[in-house]
Design a protein around this nucleic acid. Sequence first.
DNA 1: CTGTTAGCGCGTTCAC
DNA 2: GTGAACGCGCTAACAG
Lengths: 333, 333
Amino acid sequence: MARLTMKEIAQLAHVSQPTVSRVLSGNPDVNEEIANRVRQVVESVGYIPNKAAQTLKGNQSFIIGVCVSQIYNPYFVELIDSLENRAKEIGYSIIFHNSKHNPVLEWENIQNFIARQVDGIILVPTGEFNIERIKKLKIPTVVITQSNTVLDSVSLDHVKAGRMAAEYFLKKGHKEFGYIGHPHDEKFIGFESALYENGLTFNMDNYIEIAVTSTYSSMIRKDIEKYFQSHDTIHFSCVNTTNDIVAIEFMKAAQERGLRIPDDVSIIGFDDTYLTSIMGLSSIHQPIDMMVKNAIEILQNRINLQISSDKINILLDPTIIERSSSNYSRALS
Amino acid sequence: MARLTMKEIAQLAHVSQPTVSRVLSGNPDVNEEIANRVRQVVESVGYIPNKAAQTLKGNQSFIIGVCVSQIYNPYFVELIDSLENRAKEIGYSIIFHNSKHNPVLEWENIQNFIARQVDGIILVPTGEFNIERIKKLKIPTVVITQSNTVLDSVSLDHVKAGRMAAEYFLKKGHKEFGYIGHPHDEKFIGFESALYENGLTFNMDNYIEIAVTSTYSSMIRKDIEKYFQSHDTIHFSCVNTTNDIVAIEFMKAAQERGLRIPDDVSIIGFDDTYLTSIMGLSSIHQPIDMMVKNAIEILQNRINLQISSDKINILLDPTIIERSSSNYSRALS
DNA sequence: CTGTTAGCGCGTTCAC
DNA sequence: GTGAACGCGCTAACAG
């Protein structure tokens, strides 16, 4: 249980403890022979330096705190995996937290990050609740998968994604449009405006609302069923959705009601998770690795260069991946 | 950037630093008035104690290292989420690593855990490669989702799960059995032996082998396609699989070849991830929360009581969840 | 080039 | 009931 310390290594190698430190940190000003002797001992006893002490001393923990708002969506899994990979590449560890869409939990998680002396934070926020407080902490923080007006952020251009879906449907000859998403969905803004620019207005009765807190398939399904309870059938031939899970739940609900996909209703998902290939769901691809790469780069710069340059907001371009769920053209009239 | 220290809090509250320490640790031997004054200051400046220093001092980090062998399977997501939840409940943080089925990476991850002074490790091992070395570290470690002959472990009873699938198929009247899994699959042992006890022998030509390293759907799919290349069709009416992803990939491959499910071939998955409900896939349920609960409990005991009692190996009972993919009875002959 | 000294922020004696 | 002094394991500054 009691791990070896640098001091003990020093004794074993008959040198002073700082010399061991120098050898391990690659300081070249050490006699090669002595260095080898030290390395020999370190190797043979399997000594590993105590990062808690290094952190205390050096004011750097080489930890990045990651806090996501949910994890159920496979999209977040890929995000976490990608984050862990990149972080490891640059010698960082990840402390992971889930805020479950709860701002109070989110703030607790952030506080833990502070306590742990993380060098930076990557955040999928629950909303705007804690943003200002986080800003005040002066810890490099980048919001990922959403853009933010206060903090650095890296995300897909959601508005553009919405536009893209609308334009895709328009090109396929659709006339009546549906949307399934949360209230205040950026993608919807793009979706609606693209329609508007084509002389169409979105009928809000075709908006199926999913509660922000509906994190599980079953809850999403209930939200969709609620819509069907007040609407005998749907009055749209195509529908854009806020994520793949929502899309799939709608897909199932529609099929159970005898609606054919894509003939009766075309569907586009969002995130392009691996669920899409399983279900043949068209989806808008999020370049996760690219987002993560950018986010970590920003953090690194903020950490090392102590730059307090202007806020950085990166918006990446969406790509639409067509699969069978939307591969259907309406006859032109 | 430079965070407040306890000493500075002490100055602000006109007390000594140890007094602040006492107040924060809930030591009752402090004048109530002074304690309140301290709490007041702590609150108003948002002071958060430095865990790196606490770790260094107290020899406890309140960190649990979690290292999984892959993350692509949604099963692991639920595992990580559950772990994070429980850990937080007892005041622990999680450092997360993915070994990607690579023993070298796994060992690096473990070394990082040591460096970070984790109090315990929860591990989904890549194999036996590092087990003995880990044992020597004398750090409380529990293997999860697999049983282990050297370390503590909590897992489902895989052999029993295999038996359960076989018995289920037998009851449905099946005569020819298939299996899709990795080499040396514990579930297969149970599957085969249950058949054997019913006077049947498993035909190894009906074993579709998936490489351990086939982590993505596409790779699994390739393994399945390879089987079909050397076999015009399948000679089994039911098949047990090693996880849900494998099951779904087989499902798709079979359907593309005109096989009806469950009429021509019944399928049972494993893990009971949310993919199953999407696909109507029968599956053997893993009680993740129960496993996590047990695993963390074992860790806690090992950490706090310093107990070095006998190795603990918990085997939980499987449950089979029937959905449409296996809901079909063969006519009895 | 190497060893001695100091101090990171905190918890824990020990006197008072 | 409270403060002074020490040390956890390490890195950095300073001598020599």
